[in-house]
Design a protein around this nucleic acid. Structure first.
Lengths: 198, 198
DNA sequence: GTCTATATAATGATAGAC
DNA sequence: GTCTATCATTATATAGAC
């Protein structure tokens, strides 16, 4: 059934292990064990560990693009789409409490390692940033769309960091509710502002 | 002049290196190079690398306690003290853009490593959390003091994460200003609430 | 207390058989 | 494409001289 190539299996396993244990802490042995191939066979598919990291980031970029596209299909109004973003904290709550945000934690690690692929991790952030800014623009907040996008990223990143530090889920819901309220109040004031311009 | 023992030098150097490059990526060689002692000499002072980590966390706990005490001395009103917390993002802006938040990044890393000292890193978070909750209580928000403390931690953590991912400083000031506004609005509504009780 | 070996294990990476 | 050696390097950690 599974038409996945060995290469794809490697990237999928590496993706998960990098998320759970970090890039540096994940060795070829770990990945090989997960994929059930020998360490040697690895180098037929990837010449270096960094190449696997590149493939993982590419995969995450593609998956993220798919997710954003799905949100756009599932909701016509930008506020609802932004709501989808906010609610990942609930949807992926269990994993976020365990391992934090996959985007933020990878970016943080690669920055400390001064790793060239750190830019790729930032690109992953930019994907969300630009998409959110686009939605805020549709909401009528063209002038401060990027600031609002950053603001939401800031809050969701912070929730993820604290959720995994304290292993707590109580305040995740609280913070999510506040973000939804914030989005709502923004929507309201914007609707008013739009009317004034008529 | 320097009355610091070799042990203290090691802990200080390790503290800085753990912050800049992460715990796992920092080797004895790196620390030894910074302190200018041989690798072998290390084990006279610490039996394992984990022991150094413990000492570093202990040092950070002590330094944090000192910082919180200084904020209490420098300001009589709790709002001003909370303002001190918010403004670390500016004060330590350069380093935060380079290496993120020392508390958050260590906690994130140790969680992924499933390292026993992860609890120590969380204790560092709790120091801020409890202190902030105490200040909010003094502000007259006893019932939701912990939620407010978490909320501020969330936002400052998020700012630190994004600041280091994008290497940007523009939105740090923006976010800090918004946090100050939020604190102010809270203070106002609370002052009203306090009067009502009279 | 500090040093110079040295032991040991794991890691990323290679060579060559099948 | 996958495997079994194997290599070189690095890391933590130890032993023993000074």
């Amino acid at each position: 059934m599974s038409a996945m190539t060995t290469r794809e299996h490697i990237v999928e396993a590496a993706d998960e292990l990098f998320y759970r244990h970090g890039f540096e802490h994940t060795s070829f042995s770990h990945i090989a064990g997960a994929v059930k191939i020998s360490r040697g066979n690895f180098y037929y598919h990837f010449k270096t560990k960094d190449e696997i990291l590149e493939a993982v980031i590419k995969r995450r970029l593609a998956n993220t693009r798919d997710m954003l596209a799905a949100w756009e299909r599932n909701s016509d109004d930008p506020a609802g789409r932004i709501g989808c973003f906010i609610k990942i904290l609930i949807t992926n709550g269990r994993r976020i409490r365990q391992f934090g945000c996959p985007v933020g934690t990878l970016s943080t690690e690669l920055t400390k390692l001064e790793h060239p692929s750190g830019e790729g991790a930032t690109a992953l952030f930019s994907l969300f940033r630009d998409w959110l800014a686009g939605q805020f623009t549709l909401l009528g907040r063209k002038s401060d769309a990027d600031e609002l996008a950053i603001h939401l990223l800031v809050r969701s990143q912070g929730v993820a960091t604290l959720a995994s530090a304290f292993g707590d889920e109580k305040f995740i819901q609280l913070e999510v509710d506040q973000m939804i309220d914030w989005l709502q109040s923004l929507h309201m004031s914007t609707a008013g502002g739009t009317e004034e311009k008529k």
